[in-house]
């Protein structure tokens, strides 16, 4: 059960991410990013993070991606044209990225024995566990982030306002 769910949603994740990479039009990239985020929410649920799974759907695939799609529609973005200003990115970046992935994957796969395996329902963080830590030990950082969001809202309003 766990294996089947993992394979389905990990496959969806990778397919969505590759689709984001290869699509030319930003709206297609945005919609495939929604697929990635929603299937990541299922993976969080498999890892026992029930609050984060719902927050992922509500905050990421809900709020943030709606903002992205809204801006894409507002600016009436067309498909991007390929330019040749990025030759260094192609020549040095792509082999670098492949090397990064190869190194990370080989490290993780060599540690397979030490890391052990994840079992469904072995470790479940309920919302009350999470909120106990958040509101008792980490109350100050939590309040500071609320100020950060307030400042971000003000900044967004000021930046996006039409100048007279």
């Amino acid at each position: 059960m766990h294996l089947v769910l993992f394979l389905i949603f990990a496959g969806l994740c990778l397919a969505g991410a590759l689709n984001l990479l290869f699509q030319r039009h930003p709206i297609n990239s945005a919609l495939s990013l929604i697929v990635v985020m929603t299937s990541l929410a299922v993976l969080y649920l498999l890892l026992g993070a029930e609050f984060l799974a719902l927050a992922q759907i509500i905050v990421y695939s809900g709020a943030i991606m709606v903002l992205f799609v809204f801006v894409i529609m507002l600016l009436n973005v067309s498909a991007e044209e390929r330019t040749h200003g990025s030759r260094i990115a192609y020549l040095a970046g792509i082999p670098g990225v492949l090397a990064l992935f190869a190194i990370l994957a080989s490290i993780f796969l060599s540690l397979t024995k030490n890391l052990g395996s994840a079992q469904l329902g072995e470790f479940l963080v309920t919302t009350s566990d999470l909120s106990r830590v958040l509101f008792r030990d980490l109350l100050l950082p939590f309040e500071v982030t609320s100020v950060l969001i307030l400042v971000a809202i003000l900044g967004a309003v000021v930046l996006a306002r039409k100048e007279h």
């Binding site: 294996l3 498999l46 990370l104 993780f108 796969l109 052990g116 994840a118």
Partner: peptide
């Protein structure tokens, strides 16, 4: 039973 490393490889 999924090896933890599979999740990490997916993340990478």
């Amino acid at each position: 039973m999924i090896p933890i490393s599979w999740y990490l490889v997916l993340s990478a």
